[in-house]
Design a protein around this nucleic acid. Structure first.
Lengths: 250, 250
DNA sequence: AGGCGCTTGTGAAGGCGTGCACAAATCGCG
DNA sequence: CGCGATTTGTGCACGCCTTCACAAGCGCCT
């Protein structure tokens, strides 16, 4: 693995590494840091220590420092991190300075809510088109956008240069919709439909399955119930040695 | 850690291990296996090979076998896994045979959709109560349920013995709502509000932040763009050695 | 009854991520 | 100008997870 050290590359301000290929786990945490930083900025804080920011983001401070060190050496020893600079830096890495266009397919129960979700716009994402296969929904206005028929996806996606698509259709139609999105040039898909999508290798897919989250919680309920229900058959009389941190994984 | 091997414990059918304390990563995949198995059962399949089920669930077959081996030794060599048996087994482990009661707090844009989300009921979760702090929303009927005021949470949660709560409020009110849920005896929380919740150690929290998912996709868009945009400055001329699997992590 | 092909279950290795603990660096104060 | 307090950045070790590869076991066919 050739690994260029810190060489700045044309295309951005000096000192910014080309692309630090961050660990996936780090990438997943950067948005959380960003949210915490925005919150700090609103309260007027100029700088944050890794300890403070870690607490605000709900992670270990060492982990946070290691994560941030991957982006480069911002932050001053003895002082902390410059909030504004770090915000700018993370937003750059995440590509949020581009105000990315997003389209949403499937204006059902969930899609309707997503179309109006304020959290998208506030983070630099613009939902620029809504699609549905149901002719009865086409023409409906949601949050200032008109629902279009899915057959127009290709044309509109090209016009608006949409790179990110959100699928909120029933499970059965998720795969054809994904195919259509890919054909229209979309290279990132956020899928809310249960099931596995198969897409070309250059397309990124992230899945959010609300029912799965509940099932994981259900497991922990089951586990907790079976632990407390055990009268004494297990062996250990004392409940536990150390306060087990109950933050359920990722 | 005392760890009883395979001793069957009172409370379930013979041969079922008490509680195999599964790896967290395995738990997160079980619901996906379950969905794939249900799909297979509908098509009339009696048995599945690990290869087939792994493909349906979008994972490596070795990983699937190791995951399932943690639940015990179901499955027959040379044949595969009995679909119906495995469904039953996973549902038991996940605690889905209990038809768990769920309450939802915050009937805004997203909460409204969640209240009507069919995927919950179909997986054995019953949304039994809706709450909101806004008096104008109290009394509204959504999907056959009346929105109640949040002050009644404690009483109703006790009546219905609700153990799982879903938070779909604005960020600012998420923490007080979480506190109220905990006070009402809820021990598992699914949080859709951005931000970090602090809860007692015995309460499990899972977070779903829709904006974070988009930001992760945005990062990969940025990465892909910066890779293809590099004319030849980086060094490596050949794009890659092996076909990089582009499934974005967890 | 015996052998053959197929599939599970698992030992071992490698990689990734986490967390500790500490050296290096910076600021402020006397 | 020097010193101490503070905080970053990171080397290192440990544990979890993934993946490969293969032995063990099962059913079917002859």
């Amino acid at each position: 693995m050739s690994q260029q050290r810190h060489g700045s590359t044309p295309g951005e301000a000096d000192g910014v590494p080309a692309f630090p290929d961050l660990p996936e786990a780090t990438i997943a945490r950067l948005p959380e840091y960003l949210r915490a930083l925005h919150h700090l900025a609103e309260t007027g804080a100029e700088t944050v220590s890794s300890e403070g920011l870690a607490a605000a983001a709900g992670v270990n401070s060492a982990k946070l420092r290691k994560d941030l060190s991957h982006l480069g050496s911002y932050g001053t020893r003895g002082v902390g991190y410059d909030v504004a600079l770090l915000v700018h830096q993370i937003e750059y890495i995440l590509g949020l300075d581009k105000n990315r266009a997003v389209c949403l397919v499937g204006v059902g129960n969930l899609g309707h809510a997503l179309a109006g979700y304020a959290g998208f716009a506030s983070r630099g994402f613009r939902v620029v088109a809504l699609f549905d296969a149901d002719a009865r929904k086409v023409g409906e206005e949601i949050n200032g956008l008109i629902v279009q028929h899915i057959d127009d996806l290709q044309r509109i996606a090209a016009e608006e240069s949409i790179a990110i698509g959100v699928i909120a259709t029933p499970p059965g139609t998720a795969q054809p919709v994904a195919d259509a999105l890919v054909a229209a040039g979309v290279t990132s898909i956020l899928n809310f439909a249960p099931g596995v999508l198969s897409v070309p290798a250059n397309v990124d897919v992230r899945k959010v399955d609300l029912a799965i989250e509940l099932q994981i919680l259900s497991f922990h309920e089951h586990r907790k119930a079976s632990l407390t229900a055990l009268p004494g058959g297990g062996g250990r009389s004392a409940p536990a040695a150390g306060g087990e941190q109950e933050a359920v994984g990722s």
